[in-house]
């Protein structure tokens, strides 16, 4: 197994074009586990930690602020530097592994692995994130909704690398919740993200670890857009929350595995959906001037 260590993005892209079988490695929190378990034996590892430009984030100058988050920015920095602008992503980042893993792991790596249980995917789906991928042929932006193509498969071409994620700054409440089999250092049994966009009277909801890919719960989103009493202050009806939970559960396609049963996942996601909706709605009420 060769170990390639480019120091610029151009070198990295050239290496990936020449060796499409090379597996990119950033924090190594997924790749090293797979190597240790002998689940894969790539011909080469392409270490991206020497590419400084991947480890930066920036904000676009436009009024509708967009964050370009370099693929190599570790979760710890997402939490400490972007918690205000990207609250949903920061919440998901806090649930990743341990402090040591959060110091190494990256959103880019989460996308490269494209595990259905990856912690940040539901947030990327509900925030309208676009994945920036590059090759020697050029750069393109893939909407997160089109990025996940199967269990641990994504839309990257063999010569492409994930270089960044573009995320709009939050314009409304965002929530993320995860159930694990212990309180930390654990792969999600299931996870859920929700973003409300009160200006457009829209909502997005997405599930993790309960289908072959992370996916949006489209019918549940439509239900919220139509039924949420956007302009009206006050708590939500229980019947509305319950129906939302049911629609989220219906969007799942879970399996039984060592972490949990399919039935548990469906049930727990309905609970997470109801809870996160309550939290997001309360958050929205506090922000709304009518409640001030």
């Amino acid at each position: 197994m060769d170990f390639l260590r480019p120091t610029t993005l151009d070198e990295a892209l050239a290496a990936k074009a020449e060796r499409p079988g090379a597996v990119p490695i950033a924090g190594g929190t997924d790749v090293m586990v797979e190597l240790n378990f002998d689940h894969r034996r790539p011909e080469a590892l392409l270490d991206l930690t020497g590419v400084g430009e991947l480890a930066e984030w920036s904000r676009s100058s436009g009024s509708d602020g967009e964050i370009r988050l370099g693929a190599g920015v570790p979760y710890t920095r997402v939490i400490t530097e972007l918690g205000g602008r990207l609250p949903g992503l920061a919440m998901a980042s806090r649930t990743v592994g341990s402090p040591q893993i959060r110091n190494r792991g990256t959103v880019g790596g989460n996308l490269g692995s494209a595990s259905p249980a990856g912690d940040t995917h539901p947030v990327l789906l509900v925030t309208g994130a676009r994945v920036e991928v590059a090759s020697v042929r050029g750069t393109r932006l893939i909407p997160a909704t089109e990025f996940y193509t199967g269990v641990k498969r994504n839309a990257l071409a063999p010569d492409e690398l994930v270089t960044a994620v573009h995320l709009p700054e939050a314009t409304g409440p965002q929530q993320f919740a995860k159930v694990g089999t212990r309180n930390a250092m654990v792969i999600a049994v299931c996870s859920f993200a929700l973003a409300l966009d009160p200006d457009r009277a829209a909502a997005r909801a997405a599930i993790g670890s309960a289908a072959p890919t992370p996916r949006r719960a489209v019918a549940a989103e439509r239900f919220l857009a139509e039924e949420l009493p956007w302009g009206t202050p006050g708590p939500l009806r229980d019947s509305l929350k319950r129906r939302f939970g049911e629609l989220v559960a219906e969007a799942t396609e879970p399996i039984d595995d060592v972490r949990g049963t399919a039935a548990y996942r469906r049930h727990a996601l309905a609970v997470l959906a109801r809870r996160t909706l309550t939290w997001a709605w309360n958050d929205q009420q506090e922000r709304s001037p009518s409640c001030a």
């Binding site: 586990v33 378990f37 341990s98 089999t181 212990r182 309180n183 930390a184 250092m185 654990v186 792969i187 060592v258 972490r259």
Partner: peptide, 12 residues
């Protein structure tokens, strides 16, 4: 393996 045979961590 210790990623699927769970033992308590500090948070537990």
């Amino acid at each position: 393996n210790l990623s699927t045979y769970l033992v308590p961590v500090s948070a537990d």
